[in-house]
Simulated scan of single mutants.
Amino acid sequence: MRSMPDDLDIDLDGLTVGQVSTWVGVTVRALHHWDEIGLARPSLRTPAGYRLYTAGDLERLHRIVVYREVGLGLDKIRAVLDGSTADVPGALRAQRAQVTERIERLHRLGAGLDRMIDAHERGLLLTVEQQAAIFGSGWNPDWPAQARRRYGDTPQWQQYAERSAARSPEEWQAVAAAVSALDLALADAMDAGVEPGGPEANRLVERHREVFAAYFPLSRRMQVCLARMYEADPAYAAHYDGIRPGFAAWFRRAVDESARAHGIDPATATWE
């Protein structure tokens, strides 16, 4: 709020709403509203009927602006100014408690935004030690950065980052356990001679989509592309064939047959 100049003769002439708006630092619309609700009404009128503000009016406006800036609502401001509340310090303490709560909430929001930014940039918000403990000694801590460079501009990376930002190490441990259990179930099915395209293989393919949803939703077409990469990419193939020799190729065939059962040609499936 601007201070009033000492040489302005407001007692004699008063100030128009436009002048008050400039000096007090509030909009004309706000002044009209406060006038309409009886919070701050100009005390004088010109012969033509225009309202003018006196020094006393300006003092009340000053107090309104001060209390509004500390967050009091107009009803509370009216109660303070008109003396209908005797406990002004109590009202201000209550407002201070609300401000403190709002500040704490904003700090939590800021921390959440920091985690979201980190997740979009790094993918996995775990230390190298945590990653090794959760995902095992075969885990490469460079993989998240590689995935960010490869997929960082995709909707799936954004979905993965959103999940990662909200996930604790314990929750990541549960995800890793679910993935390991699925890999073993798939490998056991292959060892048991389960044929791709059969009911048991199709059930496990569906379970793979459900487990993978911990990272991002996986369509059947995307699953075909993923299984194809598991077999063709040397790093992925080594991982899955390390669980059972031939696992990567068997899983790719199982996914292909499941896709065909749903009217999808694996040869033409794309990441969508």
Rank of each mutant, 00 (worst) to 15 (best):
D6L: 14
L12H: 12
L12T: 15
L15E: 02
Q19I: 07
Q19P: 07
T22L: 15
T22Y: 13
W23F: 12
W23T: 06
G25R: 06
V26E: 00
T27M: 11
L31T: 07
H33L: 11
I37G: 02
L44V: 08
A48K: 14
G49N: 04
Y53V: 10
Y53M: 06
G56K: 07
E59W: 11
I64S: 09
V66Y: 08
V66A: 15
L72N: 04
G73H: 11
G73L: 13
L74W: 02
K76A: 15
I77V: 13
A79W: 00
D82W: 01
T85D: 14
V88G: 00
P89D: 10
G90W: 05
L92E: 07
A94D: 14
Q98K: 15
Q98C: 12
T100D: 15
H107G: 07
R108A: 10
L109F: 09
G112I: 08
L113M: 15
M116V: 06
M116C: 13
M116D: 10
I117D: 15
A119F: 00
H120D: 10
V128G: 08
E129I: 11
Q131H: 03
A132N: 10
P144R: 07
P144Y: 05
Q146W: 15
R150W: 11
D153K: 09
P155T: 09
W157C: 02
W157A: 02
W157K: 01
E170F: 11
E171M: 09
W172E: 10
A174G: 10
A177S: 11
L182S: 07
L182P: 04
L182D: 03
L184R: 15
A187Q: 03
D188I: 05
A189N: 05
A189S: 10
G197S: 07
P199Q: 11
A201R: 01
R203C: 04
L204G: 02
V205A: 03
R207V: 12
R209K: 13
R209D: 00
F212H: 13
A213R: 14
A214E: 08
A214D: 09
F216Y: 11
R220N: 03
R221C: 08
M222T: 01
M222H: 10
R228L: 03
R228W: 09
R228N: 11
R228K: 11
R228G: 03
E231Y: 07
A235R: 14
A237K: 10
G242R: 09
P245W: 01
P245E: 14
G246W: 03
G246A: 00
F247A: 02
W250K: 00
W250P: 10
W250Y: 03
V255E: 05
A259S: 00
R260F: 02
R260C: 00
A261K: 08
H262I: 04
I264T: 01
P266I: 09
T268Q: 05
